[in-house]
Design a protein around this nucleic acid. Sequence first.
DNA 1: AAACGGCACAACCGCTCTTCA
DNA 2: TTGAAGAGCGGTTGTGCCGTT
Length: 337
Amino acid sequence: MRNPPSSSKATAAASATMTTASPSSSKAGIAGGSKTPCCVKVGLKRGPWTPEEDELLANYIKKEGEGRWRTLPKQAGLLRCGKSCRLRWMNYLRPSVKRGQIAPDEEDLILRLHRLLGNRWSLIAGRIPGRTDNEIKNYWNTHLSKKLISQGIDPRTHKPLNPDHHSAAADADVDNTNKSVAAAVSFKANTRFSNPNPSPPPSDRLVHQGADPSINAMGTLSLRTNNNSHAGVLLGGGGNEEDEDINCCADDVFSSFLNSLINEDPFAVQHQLQQQVLHNGNVSTHAAGAGSDHVPLISMTSASTMTPSTFGWDSAVLMSSAFIQNDHQRVTDQTEQ
DNA sequence: AAACGGCACAACCGCTCTTCA
DNA sequence: TTGAAGAGCGGTTGTGCCGTT
């Protein structure tokens, strides 16, 4: 784990020391002369934030709320670009940000999530309350990746660096889990929500983080494939069947699904998906593109034998189910042997 | 005591995606 | 349909601190 001095360093760096901007700090972030700063406007301050700037930003957001980052600095009386303000707020000033050491259980969770999700820091951070993507990214790069390497594990693939020292079965485990999660993440990534809430919807990116309860509570969502054609997945019974709509809380499904994978319990994943289907009455899929036909009432079992290409969309929880079922079958086979 | 290197983390950049006029 | 603006993400850099030589 981390040694005590690092925490004090972190605290110091997070407050006073980093805010004592030396003349050289104005060069921060500009590597060489080729890179263009995000804020080319003359007069905008860069580098470490001062306590005064923090106060201005925090007070303004407390009063006016988040958003409109481009205009915020001017309104708040800050000589910063909006991007810088947003980053400062998100990674440091937000009340929900938890400071201090990463606990062992958090570290374990980061490892598990990274094994499943890769460098999707925001997604990982979304499942660790109070931690920011930047913090987790830093912690990974400075601690965990090195730790894994010292254990003979490739931090990118989570497989042994020396392929002679592991079994094919172990590979299969990792592969199947990764495929499951890749499909689910892809499902999420391709999911665009139609928020029924009339208030300005938060960015879709937040959906990936699972950070916004208003999104978790959404009733309707639509899907868009990578090539911008539209497709729909209906999970659930009642309600209208407008194209592009999905009438169940897919985020909950995803969340439960991910939780199960984190806990390395593929049977629970399968069970949860099946329960979701039973609860909602059916699973149906349909493509909303030209000439598409509805494919009604497919069971999870049949769904698990289908490929995404069957429907013309490139990802789905259904595929995850297939992978999980394969896992189940493999284990069953092994048991019988 | 000074120099050096590694560590930790805040901050920045380029890019991508979504929204909206 | 398209382009501009807004927002967010992952990768990278810069800086201060600390331990070692």
